[in-house]
Design a protein around this nucleic acid. Structure first.
Ligand SMILES: [Mn+2]
Ligand SMILES: [Mn+2]
Ligand SMILES: [Zn+2]
Ligand SMILES: [Zn+2]
Lengths: 142, 142
DNA sequence: ACTGATTTGAAAGTAGTTTTCATTGGAGAT
DNA sequence: ATCTCCAATGAAAACTACTTTCAAATCAGT
């Protein structure tokens, strides 16, 4: 049975002597409401619609917290701002260099080949990033 | 027949009304002398042994120049400083998160699978990065 | 050597975080 | 309900890794 994100977070908070706050509640709710890859500032804008006094730093810190308890992933596509997405099944990304759209993919055959190569040099894989940059279907027709 | 890096560079310089300078000569020579993935500051240190008056910015600009003429690649592993390596056959990387050592690999089967996935969504690939992070053989025994 | 554009190096500027610190606020104890 | 204390917050400052600016120095064609 899968744990609800909020349960995981609440357990993490109590186990670490951390507090429940209105800000965290709003930020986490807005984050999980969206299904996109979000910049900190994008999430901040969402959050400010609910509570305008919340600042960038609190959103930033809450995302770090979600990362720490494994509920979010931080991605660094290209060279600009990083993006956050909720954790879920593993996948990699194809990123359109024209419009920025992101297409997720996953392929067990690639992951297996990757494991084989690692095993050959006795390398213990902890994580990987496989990012493909190019031009999406929509951006090719214009 | 393969072009010598220096020929390629010199042609690029004259074709773009750029000049041949002692600094560029030293920096390029030191860069191609090494076979590693180098930080700007590492290359700067090498260069300063030959000519201490050369500054960071000139090394930086020369590396940008080498990138522009396709003689070097810039890599962004992890989140820190970027690394530069001379251009050559395409390959991807396994990076040890303990000691920082880098193992290059290439696998046509992975590249083919990647092409297939792209074709399926009509995505035109321009470039990709496939980086595997983990623990190298040496760092596991200690 | 003269000339005019290019290069150089120090310093300043930028982007995207990340840390600091004074103040506010949550929650268990009284 | 109030106390108390430690954690959380937000504004501002600091930080990192570049990137640009600008005045002085260099290069290379007359
Ligand atoms: Mn994703
Ligand atoms: Mn390499
Ligand atoms: Zn696109
Ligand atoms: Zn290692």
């Amino acid at each position: 049975m899968v744990q609800e994100p909020l349960e995981v977070l609440n357990r993490y908070l109590t186990e670490h002597g951390m507090k429940h706050t209105r800000q965290r509640e709003i930020i986490v709710e807005e984050f999980f409401k969206s299904n996109k890859h979000l910049q900190i500032e994008e999430l901040l804008n969402q959050v400010k619609k609910v509570e305008p006094s919340i600042g960038y730093v609190t959103v930033y810190r809450t995302l770090m917290l979600l990362k720490e308890c494994g509920l979010a992933h931080q991605r660094h596509f290209g060279e600009g701002k990083s993006l956050f997405e909720k954790a879920g099944d593993h996948h990699d990304h194809m990123i359109c260099i024209k419009c920025g759209s992101i297409h997720e993919f996953e392929d067990d055959r690639i992951e297996k080949l990757q494991d084989q190569i690692a095993k050959r040099i006795n390398f213990k894989i902890v994580s990987h990033r496989h990012e493909v940059y190019g031009c999406c279907s929509r951006c090719q027709n214009e």
